[in-house]
Design a protein around this nucleic acid. Structure first.
Lengths: 110, 110
DNA sequence: TCCTATGCTTAGACTATCTAGGCATAGACC
DNA sequence: GGTCTATGCCTAGATAGTCTAAGCATAGGA
């Protein structure tokens, strides 16, 4: 029963998306590709997870969305980090570090 | 919207339980207390999560259960790590490290 | 007597994920 | 012209692990 990194993904996707958007506005597809590349394809970002996550985040006021055009001339929905989203990222990153270091500490414990 | 460590817990509970049992057989209640103490109360282990997790793990053959008596003279169900459980822990711990380091790498990225 | 800590069980709700389908178009290739 | 791949968004339903909240039982201390 191999546990894939994805099994742990719960809750971290939104944080990773927030982080992605600190590089400037991006559309969904680009966000997915960026995360995959940044993690060396450690986890695939499924569209069925990505888009619902973006809607939740828009609803919570962490991102703003507006329709635009990609470099390739396609119609895309651009997401931009709001001030609230930036604050959330700061808080999320700290919460993640606390969680990750606690788990690691336990797993490494003699 | 404060993100509590628990939001990230998904999937890690079983791994933490496996680790707990490397210290010898323990009953559910003791497992919960050990994890909470080992993480400096960073996350509470709810009974509604713990016991179902133990049943899943027994079903998967990672642990064996048998009724016994606690130091306090109470009837307790003791869980013991199986060989398969020990292997699972090795695999889980590696998967966790891969996941955690990938996420941390992204969040720290300039 | 009452309260707390110990200890196990489980039904149902919640929610974030994945599966899998749909739709649309640009560009490359044959 | 036709086909295939990459790009791009949407969403219904299934899955699965968590939490809430209740029940049950007993030992020990105040």
């Amino acid at each position: 029963m191999r546990r894939s990194p994805v099994d742990y993904l719960h809750g971290t996707l939104e944080t990773l998306i927030l982080k992605t958007l600190t590089g400037g506005p991006r559309h969904g597809y680009a966000i997915a590709r960026w995360i995959e590349e940044a993690t060396d394809d450690t986890f695939p970002v499924e569209e069925g997870s990505l888009y619902p996550a973006l809607y939740r985040m828009e609803k919570k006021g962490w991102v703003d969305a507006e329709w635009g055009t990609s470099e390739l001339g396609r119609r895309v929905k651009l997401y931009r980090l709001t001030r609230a989203g930036r604050q959330q990222l700061t808080s999320d990153a700290a919460a993640w570090q606390a969680f990750a270091s606690a788990v690691t500490r336990v797993l490494v414990k003699a």
